[in-house]
Amino acid sequence: MNASTSAPKRKLKVATTSLAGCFGCHMSFLDIDERILDLIELIEFDRSPLTDIKHCSTDCDIGIIEGGVCNAENVHVLHEFRKNCKILIAIGACSINGGLPAQRNSLDIRDILAAVYAQPGRGVHIPNDPEIPLLLNEVHPLHEVVKIDYFLPGCPPSGDAIWKFLTDLLAGRTPSLGHGLIHFD
């Protein structure tokens, strides 16, 4: 990296995805409204539902992930993010403690599927197409699978919280939310 302070800063590459989430955190991200124009001066989006790029570049700076880990595909995507992003951020309640999807953890996944796929008079047919990722026995938060560098809680975190968090981070400060912006719901 160039040591000169006068050289123009390169844009940071940001990848985002939703695993076992509802895209609510992504929607809230868009709630930063016109501030996205300031943001886009500082970053470029890599893999993200916003760009429809399917895989991370190998030199991403920041990965932002909403949702917990509920199936095998989630694990693969999470590994791809960890491998290619220098900083990984868990955003939203589900990524941080499993959230709503993890409330299924009190039940046995076999019982759930048997109940869901029971057809009157025709028994239980649980889909087994290899295209469909297998569900994990339990839903897990991201930090139980890979190392997570930052957590941004909320369901979803507000646009203001996301803005404060990202501006801190992009300015090189350790993000700090403070009262009113830190929320678990």
């Binding site: 190998t58 590994h79 791809e80 960890r82 220098k86 190392k147």
Partner: peptide
């Protein structure tokens, strides 16, 4: 190395 590798990240996990 291109990036930090996380706990649990293993070789061959590239999608």
């Amino acid at each position: 190395r291109k990036s930090k590798s996380g706990i649990g990240t293993k070789a061959g996990d590239e999608a």
